[in-house]
Design a protein around this nucleic acid. Sequence first.
RNA 1: GCCGCCGUAGCUCAGUGGUAGAGCGCACCCUUGGUAAGGGUGAGGCCGGGAGUUCAAUUCUCCCCGGCGGCACCA
Length: 665
Amino acid sequence: MSETLSAQNPVNLRLPDGSVRTFDGPVTGTTLAADIGPGLLKAALLVKVNGEAWDLSRPIEGDSDVAIITSRDKEEALDILRHDCAHIMAQAVQELFPGTQVTIGPNIEDGFFYDFARAKPFTEDDLPVIEERMREIVKRDLEVIREVWDRNEAIEHFKSIGEIYKAEIISDLPEGEPITVYRQGDWLDLCRGPHLPSTGKLGDAFKLTKVAGAYWRGDSSNEMLTRIYGTCWTDKKELKAYLHRIEEAEKRDHRKLGKEMDLFHLQEEAQGSVFWHPAGYVMYNELQDFIRARVTQFGYKEVKTPQLLDSKFWEQSGHWAKFRENMFVVPDEIPSIEEDAPIVTGSGKLMALKPMNCPAHIQIFKQGIKSYRDLPIRVAEMGVVHRNEAHGALHGLMRVRQMTQDDGHVFCREDQITEETIKFCELLSSVYRDLGFPDFRVLLATRPEKRDGTDESWDLAEQRLEDALKETGLEYGFAPGEGAFYGPKLEFHLKDAIGRTWQCGTLQLDPNMARNLGASYVAEDGSKQAPVMLHRAVLGTFERFLGIMIEHYAGRMPLWLAPTQVVVTPITSEADDYARSVYEKALAAGLRAELDLRNESIKYKVRDHSHKKVPAIFVVGGREAENNTVSIRRLGSNQQSVVDSPKAIEDLVAEAAKPDSTANA
RNA sequence: GCCGCCGUAGCUCAGUGGUAGAGCGCACCCUUGGUAAGGGUGAGGCCGGGAGUUCAAUUCUCCCCGGCGGCACCA
């Protein structure tokens, strides 16, 4: 199967165990594997040559460090299996649906996708058919052959067979880059590789999962392609485990739990705005109390500002020009009720529901004269903002149109930026730690293409933020070009139960807005200076953060956040009075307690409250009444423990304290 | 906003060109049961909205609205 090569200089290949094998001339990975042993030859998927993944059929021409990769080398194996799976899917699609063009098909976490151009998009119903054809192609065990093509010939070839997207991709590759094409049977695709030696090596641990629309090159002004997602593993057991994982993740979807636990609902008459139910609002308020205390501790003063503001503020802030389509605009006028008299009263001005709090905070800053000695001034607000989001973007609590930010603005001097950024990172880290998210990702979002300010000012701003990040010791990455038009930002990302990441916390450095809205302070030399603003939020919004927390804890909230902390319930009605007395003591101790006197079996009541995710159930019967004890059943355990009732309450009260890692830090 | 799918009882879902069904939940009755469903009876639906085809539409077609999965956008 590998090429026969004429003997030239000897080639020495060093294996991972340090041993060296010498060949007369260039040698392929296949030959090397065969030389080592038939078992390895059978298991071999690709070869790593000096750390680079190569096809087994590609001749190794000089002395190298090599390693034969098999399915036991998970990471490398999954990479190549998934990529081959995408290719085999593309072949299946083109066999079944002639005229469909291929575009790109990369690996993603847990699988792969391939984008196709086809007049009639695929539907879920097509997936089993495509999958069946894929299995057939695997069975054909087609040899996969790597070919290096001339760039122009490649472009011509793909154009001639109607693959305009592929031709476009090649045209965009830098000159001089080798154009490699992989052929399996009579199907071929442009690809960097490497690939499996034959389709049969793929195995059967794959599944097509969903179809979706996706824009060509991720640009919404381009045409929409049809994307098929799949997952692929080294064996069936892993595939099954993955599918099970997805199923489990879906069970903790906050929209599902929100319904089951009676936390909130959404309805179309207030699309994208949350109706918080009593249970959900307990969580909301507890979280708000928590962040309010923490923010105060870090030197912020809380304010409350108007919802409706004159459009002139938004013009000055730049939002009118850049954010207008996302704003709810409200004319200040009252149309007449009478049909034939369209008289309008009011100022006729345009108002807008605030999509951000910054201009309002600047108004507070502007009251009175500020000295450089007053800075930094840290303003916080549980700011209710409205944004008219694209309808397709709305998603439970994660993406809404009315949201409450734990917003804040730091007005400071330029020389205070780094210090204030460090302080914010400390605040945010303490909050995330206390809320159960010690691991989060920080990205430094740098200058976008369209931006205000000079390159020098951006150099400085980005440097200040990066200096701060270095100082904090947080690990960070970059999001090139993702900064706001006015300045760079830090993005803090959390991952949800099904692997999607959400940006929550943010810090945005803004040297301009305060000036644009006429804010200034008196500097040491008596001159008027505009303060720098740091727009920042720790949780981001209460809506999204609670959505993430519900999923993170699968509804089993820590005691301090649980809507109902304990249910007291008797086994028979004979213990009703005792149950009531325990319940009243729990209430008096400050616990969110409920009393369940329903005439139902204890089994039923335990099941019911467990479903509702109540963290603790105090079951009481004759024995408990006699000894002044309770039988405690904690959520997630099928064990009970009998404890003196005052102690049981005391323990829960202690456990229900808000977390505070800053207290003894 | 774009592509695809979906919309039947409070919830989860069957189903049919002749105006509907299950389980859970709910109400009432029986049951007093030691830790994830004790039993019975009953109420509850303009089958998302509008138009069209048809003798007849919840069912077929079109439009709208909403939900879901992605894309784009974003906290």
